[in-house]
C-alpha cells in the first residue's frame, strides 16, 4: 500500500537524506499518548484475567496461595446444582432481555418517531428508569411485586378480590421478576439509541418509498432496519455486557431466592470469593464466564473485522 506523499513530507524526507523513518517512530506523539491506555488494557484486562485463570487451578481460600489442585475446582463447579441453576437463569435472562428490550425499545422509538406531540416528555419518561441504579430498581420492584402490598393489592382493590400474584416467592417465576425489572430499567436506553438511529435515516428514503407505495411497516423492516445495522450492533454490545454482569439487581430483588432459584453466575462468583472465602472456586466460575463470553465474541469479532478488511480491499 502506498501512501500519498505530500510536498512537506518530501521536504522532511530529503532533510533525512532520503531515509524513511523506522515504522515504530512514525506518529510518535500519538503512540506515546496511547501508551497509558495500552498499559491499562494489558495489566488490567489481560493481566488480571491471566491471574484469575492461574489461581482457578489452586485451592486458594480467602487469599491467593499456590497450592495446585488441577481441575478439581472446575469439577466441583460443574457438579454444583447452584451453578447449573445460575447458568440456566442467565440464559433465560439473556434471551428475554435481548429479545424484549430490542423489540420494545425499537417499537417505542418508532412510536416516538411519528412526529408526535410532547415527544421530549415521553422520551424523558421512558429514559428515566435508566437513571436509577440496579439496587434502587430492585428495591422498587420488590415492593411492586410484593404479594401483599404491591400491584396485586391494587388489582384486588379494583375489584378482582381473588387475585393473587406472587412471582417473587415462586421458584419458577422469580427469574422473570428479574427480567421484568431489568427491562423496565434498560429499555429506555435502547429506545433512545434506536431513536437516534431512526433520526439518522435520510428523509429522501422515506419520500422514495412513499412514491413507490411501499407500506410503512415494510419500509421499516426491509429498508430502515438494515440501514441501522451499526446502531443495532452498538445496542447489542451494551445489552450483552449488561447481561453477563447482572448482579446487583438480583441481590436487591430476590437475593437469589427463593431457595437459590434465581441465582446468577456473577453472584456465584461474588459469594464464593468474599462470603464463603473460596477464591479458587470463585475464580473457576469467573474463568468459565470469561471463556463463554470469548466463545461468543471471537467469531463475531472475526466476522465483523474480516468483512471490513475485505470491503476495503474490494
Amino acid at each position: 500500500m502506498k501512501e500519498p506523499v505530500s510536498n512537506s513530507e518530501v521536504a522532511v524526507k530529503s532533510a533525512l537524506k532520503g531515509r524513511r523513518r523506522p515504522k515504530l517512530l512514525r506518529n510518535l506523539a500519538a503512540k506515546i499518548a496511547a501508551v497509558p491506555m495500552i498499559l491499562v488494557a494489558l495489566v488490567g484486562f489481560v493481566g488480571c484475567s491471566v491471574w484469575s485463570i492461574f489461581y482457578s487451578f489452586t485451592s486458594s481460600k480467602s487469599l491467593p496461595k499456590e497450592r495446585f489442585v488441577g481441575f478439581a475446582q472446575y469439577e466441583r463447579l460443574f457438579d454444583s446444582s447452584r451453578w447449573q441453576t445460575s447458568v440456566e437463569n442467565v440464559a433465560i435472562y439473556g434471551v428475554c432481555s435481548l429479545v424484549f428490550s430490542l423489540t420494545i425499545g425499537f417499537l417505542l422509538a418508532v412510536a416516538l418517531d411519528q412526529k408526535i406531540r410532547f415527544e421530549n416528555t415521553f422520551r424523558t419518561i421512558f429514559l428515566y428508569p435508566f437513571a436509577l441504579s440496579f439496587i434502587v430498581t430492585g428495591l422498587v420492584w420488590q415492593w411492586l411485586l410484593n404479594a401483599e402490598f404491591g400491584i396485586a393489592q391494587v388489582i384486588r382493590d379494583i375489584g378482582f378480590s381473588g387475585f393473587e400474584m406472587n412471582i417473587l416467592s415462586n421458584r419458577e417465576y422469580a427469574i422473570y421478576a428479574i427480567v421484568i425489572a431489568g427491562l423496565w430499567q434498560g429499555t429506555g436506553l435502547v429506545m433512545a439509541l434506536m431513536l437516534a438511529g431512526l433520526r439518522g435515516i435520510d428523509q429522501d428514503i422515506w419520500k422514495a418509498s412513499r412514491v413507490d407505495g411501499i407500506p410503512a411497516w415494510r419500509t421499516y423492516l426491509f429498508i430502515v432496519i438494515p440501514m441501522m445495522k451499526p446502531v443495532f450492533i452498538t445496542t447489542l454490545v451494551i445489552i450483552a455486557s449488561g447481561i453477563v454482569k447482572v448482579f446487583d439487581l438480583v441481590v436487591a430483588l430476590t437475593a437469589g431466592g427463593p431457595g437459590g432459584s434465581s441465582e446468577l453466575p456473577a453472584k456465584y462468583v461474588y459469594d464464593y470469593m468474599f462470603g464463603r472465602a473460596n477464591l479458587g472456586q470463585a475464580l473457576a466460575a469467573s474463568t468459565v464466564m470469561l471463556i463463554t463470553v470469548l466463545i461468543i465474541l471471537i467469531p463475531w469479532a472475526y466476522l465483523e473485522f474480516s468483512q471490513k478488511r475485505n470491503a476495503k480491499h474490494g
Binding site: 454444583s80 447452584r82 421458584r171 431466592g257 427463593p258 431457595g259 459469594d271
Partner: peptide
C-alpha cells in the same frame, strides 16, 4: 465448618425448603 462448607449446606437446605 468453614464458610465454604456452611455456604454449600445453606444452598442445599434453602433449595430443599422452598422446592
Amino acid at each position: 465448618f468453614s464458610p465454604d462448607t456452611s455456604g454449600q449446606l445453606e444452598d442445599l437446605l434453602s433449595e430443599f425448603w422452598t422446592n
